[in-house]
Each structure stands twice: as C-alpha cells, then as structure tokens.
C-alpha cells in the first residue's frame, strides 16, 4: 500500500466519481482494487478521512446493510438518503419517510406518481401493492390517503396534517393550481 496521502486521494476520488455518476460508494467497495482496504479497517479509515482537510465533502451514511459514502460537492444529503433507502430495500420506510417529510416541511401531500420517478423507480402495480401493504402495517398508521376531485391519489402523514388540511392541499396541487397558472 502506498502512503496515507495516496490512499486518501484514491478513496476520495473514487467516492467523488461515484457520486458524480449518481451512485453511493459502499464500504465494501473500498476493499476491492485498487484501494484494497481490509474489511475491518474500512469504517475507521472513512471516519478519519472525513476529518482531513480537503476531504470535508466526503460524508457517511449508515444504512441497514452497510455504510455508504458520497461527496456533498456532487450530491445533497437528502438525495443521498433516498439512495440509501433504495439500496437498503426497506421500501416502506423509504416511502413513508418521503411522505412524512413532505407533510412536515413544505407542507404538502405527496403525489404517488413521485414514486414512479427516479430514484424510486417503482412500477405502477408494484407501487400500488406496496402502498396497500404499507398502510396496513404497524408503524405506518399515520400514512393516509387523500384524493383530489379528479381522483388522483396523494398520501400524507397525519402526524403533521389533518385530513381537511391534507385534502385542501391535494386539491390545490392537483387541480386548482393548474386553473390559475
């Protein structure tokens, strides 16, 4: 192995390049050539790296399966979290986190069509099946449906929005806003 500076550079550039290509770098990716870290040293090495001047853009996110890295020069934390959700494959959490966040911060209801777009990329039938299961599952009781007058389906979290409020936002986003462009 070369000196520390060389390895840091290799790791940093690998993470940045992956990020530019809209990919997270998994901890285990760094055990492969040319970086070839030992599996038990990856986490420490990455944590050290993020503290070194010139590598402050390297950020770590702990997923359910592994540790992920990205460069915030090329990707926002919120998008990286979405990618972690996709990688983790915990689809309920991925969808529910998005809905809860929308209800809380904008606030707005979430058009289910969002989940057919990147990086979610659900097929319509798959999405409807998952939503059907999610809304019956423990821990997701707050996720509720809201329909616009054109029957478009939106979702919201009742932790943050009342039904009346959610319905009004759905109608505004889906119908009324288009009548007042």
């Amino acid at each position: 192995m070369g000196d520390h500076k060389d390895i840091n550079l290799l790791i940093g550039e690998a993470i940045r390049l992956n990020t530019i290509n809209i990919k997270l770098t998994k901890a285990e990716d760094l055990t492969m050539e040319p970086i070839s870290l030992k599996a038990d040293e990856v986490t420490n090495k990455l944590e050290e790296l993020t503290k070194i001047e010139g590598y402050e853009d390297i950020k770590l996110l702990k997923g359910k399966k592994t540790l992920y890295c990205y460069s915030e020069k090329h990707m926002t934390g919120s998008y990286a979290k979405l990618l972690v959700g996709v990688e983790d494959g915990d689809l309920f959490a991925l969808i529910a986190d998005t809905i809860r966040n929308d209800s809380k911060i904008y606030p707005r209801t979430t058009d289910i069509k969002l989940f057919t777009k990147s990086p979610y990329n659900f097929k319509e039938k798959e999405l409807m099946d998952i939503l059907g299961q999610l809304m019956k599952s423990e821990g997701y009781e707050d996720i509720k449906e809201s329909r616009a007058s054109n029957n478009a389906l939106y979702l919201y979290s009742e932790l943050h929005l009342s039904k009346a409020y959610a319905d009004s936002l759905t109608e505004w986003i889906e119908v009324t806003s288009l009548e007042c462009p």
């Binding site: 809209i22 926002t76 777009k117 990147s118």
Partner: peptide, 20 residues
C-alpha cells in the same frame, strides 16, 4: 420537479422540469 442529486428539495409543480 423531481428528485435530483444536486437538489435538497423538489416540488411536483415546479417549472424546473428538466431531468435526465
């Protein structure tokens, strides 16, 4: 209008519709 790597936020009715 859709999630993008550079964006912290998105909004379906945004007129920033560009996406790959």
């Amino acid at each position: 209008s859709t999630p993008q790597p550079w964006a912290e936020y998105n909004a379906a009715r945004s007129r920033w519709t560009a996406t790959d």
